[in-house]
Simulated assay, not measured.
Amino acid sequence: MIRFYLTFDVEDFINSRSTLALRNILEILDDRGFTGIFFITGHKAEELKEEKEVLNCLSDHIIGYHSSSHSVRPTIPEFTDIGNYKFAKKISKKRETSYIDPLTGEIKGKGGIKTLLELFSDKNIDLYRAPGLSWSPPHTEALIELGINKDFSTSLFPYPLQFKDISFFPFPTEQSVLGLLLKVRDMIKSSEAFLRRKEVPVVLLWHPSGFVNEKSWDFFYRKKNPRRLEQVPPLSETQRRKNFNTFSSILDRLSFFERATNIVKVKDSVEDVEKRNFEPNVMKEYDRIAFWVRKRFEYEPTHLKNHLKYFLDESV
């Protein structure tokens, strides 16, 4: 069985068109009867307090957390980049339950995952994805204490596995229609080899802001925290329409494969997974995590490698 997870990172709290894009995405999903997984940042959760219709639509889907410190400095790999693992964990827990000033990076009262839990009081929010897929072990352990037990941030293993009281799901991918068709077609053609496995998970990733914005909504955070929040130019109406049509086409193809092949399933829930034996590649994961903060924020982690060794080696 090829199991598809439809996931969305909901981040842009500055450009109102991104919220409109989110509404369009929800309508498209609902039209086709698909359930999405929406990872929402603390700042976006604050904005959504005033979006009652969007909240009502989101209530039919799976809600995950996407940090209170998505782009604002210090980012997660920065504020956990200290030698004391336990103190990095303590800092993480404090920041992820707080509102972070988007201009200074300072804690300004309650917020973060607490805001998300208030918005969706009837949901058990236990999923997380790290901004830029750059996770940090002490931060992950802090999230476990806050009720997170499923993570979509790592590339440790190509199949879901449970490790240290948290289920790790495979690395997400952003797919084109053609790429998706070729992937499913090849899997079906190699069904004999495919059927030896219980399942092949495929995590698809979209950003609602990417449907409508000409460039990254958070570009101005890359050097340092800005003096003011800046809006970005919109994509042309033609390009926006094309993006939503492409998204609709992908869902239509998935719907067809689900009906016609009996080996494709678009998941409408996220269950815990079994423990598996695995041999983690610390250096490979370190290089992948560090890539985002190096490229985007020009920051070179100092203690991340040791934190990974401690987290991964301790219970292997």
Rank of each mutant, 00 (worst) to 15 (best):
M1K: 03
R3S: 13
L6N: 11
L6M: 02
D12R: 11
F13E: 00
I14Y: 11
N15D: 00
N15R: 04
R17V: 12
S18G: 05
L22W: 12
R23I: 00
N24I: 05
N24V: 09
E27A: 09
I28V: 09
L29C: 04
D30I: 00
T35E: 11
F39A: 02
H43N: 06
H43P: 05
K44L: 09
K44W: 00
E46M: 04
L48V: 03
N56V: 02
L58G: 02
S59T: 02
I62E: 10
G64Q: 05
S71H: 15
R73C: 00
T75Q: 11
T75D: 11
P77N: 06
E78V: 03
F79Q: 05
F79E: 14
D81W: 08
F87T: 04
F87W: 07
K90A: 04
I91H: 06
R95H: 06
Y99N: 12
I100K: 02
I100D: 01
G105L: 07
E106R: 14
E106Y: 04
K108L: 01
G109Y: 06
K110G: 01
L119G: 02
L119V: 01
F120L: 05
F120V: 03
S121I: 02
S121R: 14
I125N: 08
A130P: 15
P131A: 07
S134P: 03
W135E: 01
H139A: 13
A142W: 08
E145K: 08
L146H: 06
L146R: 02
I148R: 13
N149W: 00
F152A: 02
L156E: 03
F157P: 02
Y159Q: 09
P160Y: 10
P160G: 09
Q162N: 14
Q162A: 11
K164T: 10
F169T: 02
P170F: 02
P172L: 00
T173R: 15
V177H: 09
L178F: 14
L180S: 02
L182V: 07
L182R: 14
M187P: 07
M187T: 11
I188Q: 13
I188F: 15
E192N: 08
E192T: 05
R196A: 07
V202W: 06
L204T: 13
L205M: 13
L205A: 05
W206G: 01
H207G: 09
P208Q: 03
S209M: 08
E214W: 08
Y221E: 15
K223H: 10
K224S: 13
P226H: 09
R227E: 12
E230C: 08
S236T: 13
Q239I: 04
K242M: 07
N243Y: 06
N245S: 05
F247K: 00
S248V: 00
L254D: 08
L254W: 08
S255M: 13
K265Q: 11
N281V: 00
N281W: 04
D287W: 12
D287A: 15
D287I: 09
R288V: 00
R288Y: 14
I289Y: 11
R294N: 15
K295V: 06
Y299A: 03
E300L: 15
K305I: 02
N306H: 14
H307E: 11
L308G: 04
K309T: 03
Y310A: 08
D313E: 10
S315D: 13
V316D: 07
